[in-house]
Design a protein around this nucleic acid. Structure first.
Lengths: 203, 203, 203, 203
DNA sequence: GATGAATGAGCGTTCATTCAT
DNA sequence: AATGAATGAACGCTCATTCAT
């Protein structure tokens, strides 16, 4: 079926180009506050023209959102994998998640942006909610499997919150190098895991 | 010493004016995303000219920072008061802090901004660190007094993180009213307090 | 001569395609200000690709001009028909022309555009002049046949001007519906016809 | 009253600057299609920065409208003067108006733009209508005073239309110099005046 | 010290046109 | 001949900052 093959090729090409832009944007975001990255910079960095970016995204917010949601899907996938391939472990979950946040600070910044102030078109809000709920579900899986008696959803929320909070509180610690920050945040992730583990056993 | 009196007067006036600007800015931030507030708006709202603002602040970031640090000092003060007037209580601390974040979303947004992305001049960084350390010390006071055996500082960091994280994770939940958000975040604050309380007793 | 037949076929096909684009453009112009119609929209509406349009027209101005001139030829033809099938009548001429302008606002807008501001390549200017002169000649036919003693060409110009002017002055009257505008402009066309009729008898 | 004097000075200065921009814009419009004049060009031509223009006008449409309305008020004033200082004369009115259009082609182009396609904010539409009605009233004054028995308003509309139409039909005549165009349009204005004059006497 | 008009770099976005397939 | 993704100059507009008064 040459028709299909051709379509696939086209589709692949389009996807590849989109990925090119996506990755360029992500790299740029890693260097500075993502809100200060411009369309021009992304275009230059991706090696395409400004117009091309608008060929793939209606506006820059959509691109930002795509970077964010791609990241969210990534960590969601990682947690699902962990759940499926190893006995459930709060410490490992915490380590996994905080490691990811350290390696993807943009994701973290964007979570703050989109979940706090960001005016989003309704369609985008829907997509955002769906993806975030899926992430939360995967965390829930592990929390539940850790033998918790309480209504698990609240615990999952609290744990998710605590891990996110580690970053907002320490990720930007001035005068610290990236490895130092990673070390400190992972240590705190361990403390959180411990506290939740022993705190929940005894309820 | 008339010279001193005159200086004091001048000093007071200057401080009063600065406060005027500060308060106007804070009020404006309460209405919308702080990054979208313009110098023009602040000037108008404070009843002074644009130029005057630059008389008190070198640039708009300094003003933003001043608002943030003022808020930080405020919550620091509240926690100190709590510590001095009531028996130490993790649940009350958590409630107090999360209530404050709900009532001062700007503080929360700015914490995210300054601690994550914000390029700050060194002097500003120093001031930021000092104030945040002081806030942490007050949290530390209560954590220590709650009868914890472990090295308290880490626990304090983790607790502080967890409380901050509650907000980034749920404060912007789309489709929820402010009271609903407050209710949910306070509930989660309760869960965190519980978990830390029972989790730490048994270590 | 198969060669010729083939050429004819090709020629017909080409013409049909051009007509397709032309009609799509005209329909689009009817919906909104012609200056705001994009090549992309025309292509989509005509069911061809952007590139194809450039295969038939060097640039978008040429297409606009083609739409305009086609319209001009249409009204020219209508007036000739009127001249050939009915006794010459100024009122009927005025009614016919103003009705056409009402039903083809694009033509009117374009007349304003091309005759006032439009930078046109010389070849296009020639074509424009030829077509407009032909239109004027048909008006002239009827004016002359109406029993006018004066040098007819000036009268024809003045009449043509007056009818065009009715539109620029009232076609966009805000708050009026299309039928109301048609009614008013036709009434004014009647006044103009009367004035020219009685004004010219007595000279 | 020094306060008032100061305010007057400020007011005058502001007005002078606004006039500067207005005139620069008008000059530019005279050179090319007014829709193709950019904010940058106007700024450069007026010797001010881009930002300054936005200090006086909310957006470029407002500036365009100001140029147009200023012109409209000018010709309105000229016609009123004529009415007050000379016996009413259709030929003189026609000559006056068409001379003005020749010397202010921008006014003519803008009339076409604003009265046909131009999407205008309601406030602007109101202002536009008021000014145009005032212009029409002055024409009405002279038409009525010319001893016309018919309902004058329709006649005024028709005359106004006819004069405007002269321009749309001949102002851009390609290959003609400005003086030639002026001569031809004034000649047609004379024809129109004649026709209306004798046509109306006999009704 | 207070003022606010002026500044202009820089923003996101558009769209006629090109050209490799 | 037909395609449509890529292009990038150019647009209107914003807003932190400056500086003459």
């Amino acid at each position: 079926m040459p028709e299909n093959a051709w379509n696939d090729l086209k589709h692949n090409e389009r996807d590849a180009r989109r990925r090119l832009i996506l990755d360029a944007a992500r790299d740029l975001f890693a260097e500075k506050d993502f809100k200060s990255v411009t369309v021009r910079e992304i275009a230059k960095s991706a090696g395409v023209s400004i117009g091309t970016i608008y060929n793939y995204y209606d506006n820059i917010t959509e691109l930002f959102l795509d970077v964010f949601l791609t990241n969210a899907e990534q960590i969601t996938h990682l947690i699902r994998q962990e759940y499926q391939t190893a006995p459930p472990s709060l410490p490992r979950l915490c380590d996994l998640y905080v490691t990811f946040l350290n390696d993807n600070m943009t994701f973290y910044q964007m979570m703050g942006h989109f979940m706090l102030g960001g005016e989003l078109p309704p369609a985008a809000t829907d997509r955002l909610n769906r993806v975030m709920r899926s992430l939360m579900d995967r965390i829930d899986d592990i929390v539940k499997a850790s033998g918790i008696s309480e209504p698990a959803r609240h615990i999952s929320h609290a744990l998710f919150s605590a891990l996110n909070g580690i970053m907002i509180s320490y990720a930007g610690y001035p005068g610290r190098t990236a490895p130092e920050i990673k070390a400190h945040t992972l240590r705190l992730a361990g403390v959180v895991a411990d506290v939740f583990h022993s705190g929940l056993k005894n309820n």
